[in-house]
Amino acid sequence: MSVREWFALIAFASSVLFGSAGLVGMFRFPDPYSRMQAGGLCGTTAVFSAFIGALILAPNAAIAARVVVIMVFFLVSAPTGSYIVARFTWQSGTPVWKPLAKTKRLSRKKEPT
């Protein structure tokens, strides 16, 4: 194994770690917001790690340049997609899950400033 492959292995291993943690979290948490937070691990960090691994293993400059452009645009497009989903969830009035809820009063209440 060359040095390049070791680095790619590290990137792919972190992708597997974050991806599986995100999938576990997506099934473990009970409300859409928390699922979105955990799913962000799989949908953003794991994908980004896979890009880094692919960039390290890129066979020629044309492929590497395209992967870099995809990475930069992914940093813009990924939060835009999650923002659209989050805004839809918020505007349809989904309440927020609270693990040790003392009161029944949930979201939509402004914090005292």
């Binding site: 974050f18 960090t45 927020v96």
Partner: peptide, 21 residues
């Protein structure tokens, strides 16, 4: 991104969280 991902991984496996708006 990586720093807060590591926090989040810990929260997923321990289940400790206090979500709030």
């Amino acid at each position: 991104l990586y720093q807060s991902s590591i926090h989040m991984v810990r929260a997923v496996f321990t289940g400790k969280a206090s979500p709030r708006i």
